[in-house]
Amino acid sequence: MTFPNDETGQVLAEMQTAGIDLNEIHQVVFFQLFEQEQQARAMVAHLAEQAPDMQVELVPDELPNVWDVNCTVSMVPSYDAVIAQEAEFELLATKFKGYNDGWGIEA
């Protein structure tokens, strides 16, 4: 399987090379970053209401005064699906004054 020449394509290619079957459902974690805990908590509350089955975790980042909202989605990590989900999270995080900071698979 080949992937587009961008960051998402590169990550998927590396996962495939590492032996991860990208045709199976995986727990894909999308990372949102916030400079204020209140903004992060607002996004967590929104997701609890709008997507109650989604696993959402709020944790302090390694950097001081930065908060992570990690959103886990069960999905087949195809290039198009990851790009679409990232775009949705970017719009949502922006609404709460945060931003999407990538994704990964729990392997």
Rank of each mutant, 00 (worst) to 15 (best):
G9C: 10
N5G: 00
V44G: 12
M15C: 04
V66Y: 14
F3S: 08
V44C: 13
D61I: 00
K95T: 03
Q36A: 08
L63T: 07
H46V: 02
Q10C: 00
L33D: 10
E35W: 15
V11I: 14
F31D: 15
D53R: 01
N23A: 02
E88H: 07
D68L: 03
L63H: 12
V44H: 06
L47E: 10
T8S: 14
M54L: 10
P60Y: 06
E24I: 00
I83G: 01
K95Y: 04
E37N: 11
S78R: 13
A40Y: 03
N70W: 05
A84D: 14
T8Q: 15
V82T: 06
Y79G: 09
Y79V: 02
G98C: 10
G19E: 08
K97C: 02
E57F: 03
L22Y: 04
A107H: 08
S74P: 11
V29D: 10
V44P: 05
N100E: 13
K95M: 08
A107S: 01
P77F: 03
A51M: 11
L58K: 03
I83A: 10
E24P: 00
D80V: 01
Q50L: 02
G19Q: 06
A93E: 05
A93Y: 07
V28Q: 12
C71S: 11
F31R: 12
G19H: 08
